[in-house]
C-alpha cells in the first residue's frame, strides 16, 4: 500500500514529488499498462454528463435498459447459486428469486432486441464502429446460449424435455461430443461460469467501444445540422 506524495506533504509542488512514477522509466510494464488503461477511453468520456442533442430520443435508452436488466439477471443468479436447486424449488423466497431471474432475462432479451433493431436501422457500424456492432451481435448470440443452458439447469421436467429435444440438434452440428445437453452438471457450469464470464467481459468491451467512439448519430443528423 502506497500513499501519494501530495498527501504526505501538501506543500509539495516539485515534479519529482508529484510524479506518479518515481522511477521515470517509460518502459516499465506498470507505466505501459497504466498508459493502456488511460488510453482506452478519451479523457472525460468514461462517464460523460453531456451528450449530443440527437441522443435525446427514447431509442437510445434501450442500451442502458439492457445493461440494467443484465445487472438484475446476474444479481438474482448469484442469489440462486447461494441457495441451490432445492431452495429455489421449495422455498417461497427461492420461488421469488427464481422468478426475478426469469423475468429479468425476459426483459433483458426484449430490451436487447429493440436496441438491436434501433442500431440496425441506424446502420450503427458507421464511423469506425464496426467492432462495437460485432461485439453486440456476438453478445446477443452468447446470451442465447446462456439462456439455453439456464433452461437446462432448472432441474425439473422442463429441463429434461428441453435436453432430450435439444440433443439431436446439438449432435447434428457436431458439438455433442464436448457440449452434452444431457449432462446437467456440465450445462450448469456453462451457465454459471463460462458463459456469464464471456457475457461480462464482452459487455465491458462493448461499453468501452461505445464510450471510445461515441454514440452513433442518426442517418440524417448531418443534414439537419
Amino acid at each position: 500500500m502506497t500513499t501519494r506524495a501530495s498527501e504526505l506533504s501538501p506543500d509539495a509542488t516539485g515534479p519529482s514529488e508529484l510524479s506518479p512514477d518515481p522511477t521515470g522509466d517509460p518502459d516499465s510494464w506498470t507505466n505501459r499498462l497504466r498508459g493502456w488503461f488511460e488510453g482506452l477511453v478519451p479523457a472525460g468520456q468514461a462517464l460523460p454528463d453531456r451528450q449530443p442533442v440527437y441522443v435525446a430520443s427514447w431509442i437510445y435508452v434501450f442500451g442502458v435498459l439492457t445493461l440494467t436488466a443484465l445487472v438484475v439477471v446476474i444479481a438474482s443468479g448469484v442469489v440462486l447459486s447461494l441457495g441451490g436447486a432445492t431452495w429455489w424449488h421449495v422455498s417461497s423466497v427461492g420461488h421469488y428469486v427464481n422468478s426475478v431471474h426469469l423475468w429479468s432475462v425476459e426483459l433483458f432479451f426484449g430490451f436487447m432486441v429493440i436496441h438491436l433493431w434501433g442500431n440496425f436501422w441506424m446502420a450503427a457500424w458507421r464511423g469506425r464502429r464496426a467492432m462495437t456492432w460485432i461485439t453486440g451481435i456476438v453478445l446477443f448470440l452468447i446470451s442465447i446460449g446462456t439462456s439455453f443452458t439456464g433452461f437446462l439447469s432448472q432441474s425439473n421436467f422442463s429441463a429434461q424435455w428441453i435436453a432430450a429435444e435439444g440433443k439431436d440438434g446439438i449432435n447434428s452440428i457436431g458439438a455433442g461430443a464436448f457440449f452434452n445437453v444431457l449432462n446437467p452438471a456440465q450445462m450448469l457450469l456453462w451457465h454459471v461460469v463460462l458463459l456469464p464470464l464471456s457475457v461480462g467481459l464482452l459487455t465491458l468491451l462493448h461499453i468501452i467501444l461505445v464510450r471510445r467512439h461515441g454514440v452513433v448519430p442518426p442517418l440524417d443528423a448531418r443534414l439537419e445540422n
Binding site: 430520443s57 427514447w58 434501450f62 426484449g110 432486441v113 429493440i114 434501433g118
Partner: peptide, 17 residues
Amino acid sequence: IIAVMVLLFILALVVPF
C-alpha cells in the same frame, strides 16, 4: 410479445424525449 416489442420500438421513435 413480438407485437408489444414492435409497438415499443415505434413508440421509442415517435414519442418525444
